[in-house]
Design a protein around this nucleic acid. Structure first.
Lengths: 247, 247
DNA sequence: TGTATCTATTTGTATAGACAAAAGCGGGGA
DNA sequence: TCCCCGCTTTTGTCTATACAAATAGATACA
């Protein structure tokens, strides 16, 4: 048994994505839907608010509700931790720490990160392999002021990306995807040719406007791609179970 | 004056993104929030439903509401039409049709698209330039059965991507991002070197399980990147105005 | 003609109350 | 011991009502 507001939501959504109600179309006012579905206005309002919350319609008092213009440009990409991704796909994942060094931020890197010069950081280089084949080179900077416990962590059993996700709250993330040609060092580590096209993911994560970590993950272009599906109705909400219990 | 349910939403959201309430934390039950905010349960319910709708909390009857685990992997990337993107950034955009040909689907391409062999298609190749410099090579397939009007459109004044977006409703899109090395033809058109790393965006668009269009857009790696920000609260909803009304 | 004001429409928010559905929990009986 | 049943908690849905806020359009007025 499906609820009424859900039913209204789905009916209207179908009309919108099918193109029967094109962008700019004025949808029936709440009172008309109340008549049509024989329910209270609150129920209709809930459905319409949900559509508005997902950006499928625009509502304006006294004016009405209108089908929004299409937003193909906003796509949800699954950008995951490498080890998680490999596990989900049923592949074997391993990694090796290539470098682990505590430094202070030089001026160039500080500018790039938007952080003050001289801050203490942990610099990590790490090589990931999937099914025994090198799959990614990870170059990471961790701000030790934000993650003091990283100072003593050796990342022997949990890869840095996963460790940080579990350890540190973040409030904002920025991703950049680039194509670069492999230099000699990258080519050697990734077992590819010099100049080969590589797909680089750069991620910077903040906690209330202070950088937590900055990472570049370089994949050989012939072994990796990013993919993302977009359905108008499924905007990035997944089912999850509560972890453990209360704390 | 901010509404009560909005205020509750923002308060709880702040507690979650700041890490004060970690993943798995059981948040107060509705009745407790009713007491705390001195409002009705419906108002609290609206705030909590909104948080659940955004995937920030998980709710289960009799059990309670829990902070969801973090979803850094779900990132909204702005993947736009090239001309729109250039305009937004204040750059000049031009394009040139390199090829325009009506064909029938061969078996290899049919399999790749998941469409029956022999279907009529329009094949388009197009070179985009931004500020006079080649910026992207577009290779597109349009299913003529889904977009009959493409048969007579010459795309002289509106680029194919934009034209299709305005013309055809779609219900699902899939994006893939790859890094590839430029072959001789690509290098010549994009005025780069053979073997240079290129960032390729592949997009396939469906209308109720039938392909509308398939396109590969190849960018020179040194002139292009994809970027996307993620804030827990801002999940891809932008303000828009109804079509036809000025403001 | 232009401007200020009023009015009607439509959405936004909030309330109190009611019952339903899911599910953990404990008790009683086999 | 194990299973079924009913109780309780918590969320889900729905109603009817009320008033607030925004604003397009009409009207009155200068």
């Amino acid at each position: 048994m499906i609820s009424i507001h859900r039913r209204i939501f789905e009916d209207l959504e179908a009309l919108i994505v099918s193109g029967a109600w094109p962008p700019g179309y004025r949808i029936p006012i709440e009172h008309e839907l109340v008549q049509q579905y024989q329910c209270s206005r609150m129920t209709v309002n809930k459905a319409l608010s949900a559509l508005a919350g997902r950006g499928m319609i625009i509502r304006r008092r006294k004016v009405g509700s209108f089908v929004a213009s299409r937003q193909i440009e906003r796509t949800v990409m699954d950008i995951q931790d490498i080890s998680t991704e490999a596990e989900l796909a049923g592949h074997d994942h391993s990694y090796r720490i290539l470098m682990r060094k505590i430094e202070t931020l030089d001026s160039a890197t500080a500018a790039q990160l938007g952080e003050p010069m001289g801050a203490q950081i942990l610099r990590l280089h790490c090589l990931h392999a999937v099914d025994g084949k090198p799959n990614a080179l990870e170059r990471r900077i961790i701000m030790l002021a934000m993650v003091p416990s990283a100072r003593t962590e050796n990342f022997a059993s949990v890869p840095p990306g996963k460790w940080l996700l579990d350890m540190v709250p973040w409030s904002k993330a920025r991703h950049v995807i680039r194509a670069v040609s492999a230099d000699a060092a990258m080519a050697r580590l990734l077992e590819t040719e010099r100049g080969a096209a590589c797909l680089t993911l750069i991620r910077q994560t903040w906690q209330s406007s202070r950088t937590v970590t900055y990472v570049e993950i370089i994949h050989p272009g012939d072994r990796f791609q990013f993919a993302g599906d977009f359905h108008p109705s499924e905007r990035g909400v997944m089912d999850q179970l509560p972890r453990g219990s209360a704390s």
